[in-house]
Simulated scan of single mutants.
Amino acid sequence: MELEAAVKRAVDECIREGILEDFFRKNKAEVIAMSIFEYDEKEVIDYIREEERAIGREEGREEGREEGREEAKKEVQKYGRLILRLTEEGKSSLVVKIATDDALRERLYEEYRL
Results as ranks from 00 to 15, higher is better:
Met1Ala: 09
Met1Lys: 03
Met1Trp: 08
Glu2Ser: 15
Glu2Thr: 13
Glu4Met: 10
Glu4Thr: 14
Val11Leu: 09
Val11Cys: 05
Asp12His: 15
Asp12Tyr: 12
Glu13Ser: 14
Arg16Gln: 06
Ile19Ala: 07
Asp22Gln: 10
Arg25Pro: 01
Asn27Ala: 06
Lys28His: 11
Ile32Lys: 08
Ile32Gln: 05
Tyr39Lys: 07
Tyr39Trp: 10
Tyr39Leu: 10
Glu41Asp: 04
Ile45Pro: 00
Ile45Tyr: 04
Asp46His: 09
Tyr47Ala: 09
Tyr47Phe: 15
Ile48Lys: 08
Ile48Pro: 10
Arg49Thr: 03
Arg49Ile: 14
Glu50Leu: 15
Glu52His: 15
Arg53Ala: 15
Gly56Val: 05
Arg61Asn: 11
Glu63Cys: 07
Arg65Ile: 14
Glu66Gly: 02
Arg69Leu: 13
Arg69Pro: 04
Glu71Thr: 08
Glu71Arg: 12
Glu71Gly: 02
Ala72Ile: 05
Ala72Asn: 00
Glu75Asn: 09
Glu75His: 01
Val76Cys: 00
Arg81His: 08
Leu82Lys: 07
Ile83His: 04
Ile83Phe: 02
Leu86Gly: 05
Thr87Cys: 07
Ser93Phe: 12
Ser93Val: 06
Leu94Lys: 11
Lys97Gln: 11
Ile98Met: 12
Ile98His: 11
Ala99Thr: 03
Asp101Trp: 06
Asp101Arg: 12
Asp102Asn: 11
Leu104Thr: 02
Leu104His: 03
Arg105Gly: 01
Glu106Ser: 02
Glu106Thr: 09
Arg107His: 06
Leu108Phe: 02
Tyr109Cys: 05
Tyr112Val: 05
Arg113Asn: 03
Leu114Phe: 00
